[in-house]
Design a protein around this nucleic acid. Structure first.
Length: 447
RNA sequence: GACCCCUUCGUCUAGUGGUUAGGACACCGGCCUUUCACGCCGGCAGCACGGGUUCGAGUCCCGUAGGGGUCGCCA
């Protein structure tokens, strides 16, 4: 029987990083096993389940690249979904639940109680076979001891989570339930429900939770809890996927930087960790850097152009060679996509925006004659490539009996406005002789 | 209160009775670099605690402590 897994989020208005990781593990397992990844929207609840809230989830999954084989096409529950096991919105599956509830009622496995319907739960310990945690024997808590039966249909007629979750997994032919460990205790209820319906249990795999860096529970308000943090934070989806995969799963050797294709190839349930993991932004940042530098040149350029455009920097006026040469200087230096505009924006601005501190340090009265001399030397150059620029600067410094550094920083600030940036000689080569001289002149004006 | 899961450097992890307990991120040095990075070299740092079992325990058992989860007519 082929693998069928599902991600079943409740549309709460944001995609939690833990939910994203659960979706990722399901997706990786499906892709690894050549199975089907189902997306099911658990919108049985109340008014908070809006189309917008569903779209937030779908957008987050799409951004990560987690495509689903069956499920909604959009956040609109009324729109037809893809897949033949639908509907994939629980709000549209009322008749299915009614049938299943009646089945339980007919078999006297459930009964009415004060307008609600309750399920006859066993009082015996329930064994939960779990691929990650092993066989978990769940005893009744003292409160459950007092009344083991639980509500499956509210008095207002709406079926509750435990019931619909199990019914859907049965109807949709789910073979592996991969979900957060926060569901482990409640799985005893699900196990009994599956038995009541007379079907075989799916394989359960409860994965550890993601905690804050200090070990506390990660809730909506905590930094990094929402996927939007990464979607807007200059991260590559591949980096986030890679990092998330390593939280609670290990390939068992020391491999860490892995493209999605390799994760699919290597991911499997036996490698899933038992203990909760803490979120470490620094490590994500490092992986982001690794994935950015691993980008194909064309992909990097596409990313960079998008960033520059978003920052309001117009690159259309420049020719492609110039733009590509400027972007090429960022290779291996950019750690976050959001840094690109600040790093090389100067290439595309007519007037350099001077960083106040940098200008104060570099544009001193003592430096003025040195920079003026370099300006003349550069204006006379017949070859304007990086090597010539370096030789010329060294010669100028020697002639004026100052260290190279005395010329380097004013030149850098004059060209870029900043103390940090790409290699000075290379960036001047790209800027071109006329532009460099022009920028030196503008700097000299302020000194 | 009850029930369930978990516990190796600060963090993510390797480790399935015999290892100088390995790697990565972070951090701290040095080299390279006439910017910032990258890179290279080196360093700091861990088996929660207490009992067992065993010739031998990070690995097995029990207990304690700590962390997380669940016990709802929320999902």
């Amino acid at each position: 029987m082929s693998v069928r897994v599902r991600f079943a989020p409740s549309p709460t208005g944001y995609l939690h990083i833990g939910g994203a990781r659960t979706a990722l593990f399901n997706w990786l397992y499906a892709r690894h096993a050549g199975g089907i990844f189902v997306l099911r929207v658990e919108d049985t609840d109340d008014a908070r389940n809006t189309r917008e809230a569903v779209d937030v989830i779908l957008d987050g999954l799409r951004w990560l690249g987690l495509d689903w084989d069956e499920g909604p096409v959009s956040g609109d529950a009324m729109q037809e979904s893809k897949g033949d096991r639908g509907p994939y919105f629980q709000s549209q599956r009322g008749d299915i639940y009614q049938r299943r509830i009646q089945e339980l009622l007919d078999n006297e496995l459930a009964y009415e109680h004060e307008g609600a319907i309750k399920f006859r739960m066993t009082r015996e310990p329930v064994t939960i076979p779990d691929l990650v945690a092993g066989d978990v024997v769940r005893k009744l808590t003292d409160r459950e001891e007092a009344d083991p039966d639980f509500v499956i249909v509210r008095s207002d007629g709406k079926p509750v989570f435990h019931l619909v979750n199990v019914v859907d997994d049965i109807e949709m032919g789910i073979t592996h339930v991969i979900r957060g460990e926060d569901h482990l205790s409640n799985t005893s209820k699900h196990v009994e429900l599956f038995k009541a319906f007379g079907v075989e249990l799916p394989k359960f795999a409860h994965i550890p939770l993601i905690l804050n860096n200090d070990g506390s529970k990660m809730s909506k308000r905590d930094t990094g809890a929402s996927m939007t943090t990464y979607m807007e934070g200059g991260y590559l989806p591949a980096a986030v996927v890679n990092y998330l995969s390593l939280l609670g799963w290990s390939p068992k050797d020391d491999t860490e930087v892995m493209p999605v294709a390799e994760l699919i190839k290597r991911f499997d349930l036996p490698g899933v960790q038992r203990a909760n993991a803490r979120f470490d932004m620094a490590k994500l940042d490092w992986l982001n850097f690794e994935h950015i530098r691993a980008l194909e040149p064309d992909d990097f350029i596409a990313q960079a152009l998008g960033q520059l455009q978003a920052a309001g920097i117009d690159t259309a006026a420049r020719d492609a060679d110039y733009t590509n040469a400027a972007l090429a200087l960022c290779t291996d230096k950019i750690k976050n996509l959001n840094d690109i505009a600040g790093y090389i924006g100067f290439f595309f601005r007519d007037a350099v925006e001077f960083n106040a501190e940098a200008a104060e340090q570099a544009f001193t009265p003592e430096n003025r004659p040195h920079l003026a001399a370099l300006r003349e030397a550069y204006a006379d150059l017949t070859q304007f490539d990086a090597d010539s620029l370096m030789e010329s600067l060294k010669a100028t410094a020697a002639a004026r009996e100052v260290k190279n550094k005395v010329l380097v920083m004013p030149a850098r600030v004059a060209c870029t406005g900043s103390k940090v940036g790409p290699s000075l000689y290379h960036l001047m080569e790209v800027l071109g002789q006329a532009e460099v001289v022009k920028r030196f002149d503008a700097a000299l004006e302020t000194m």
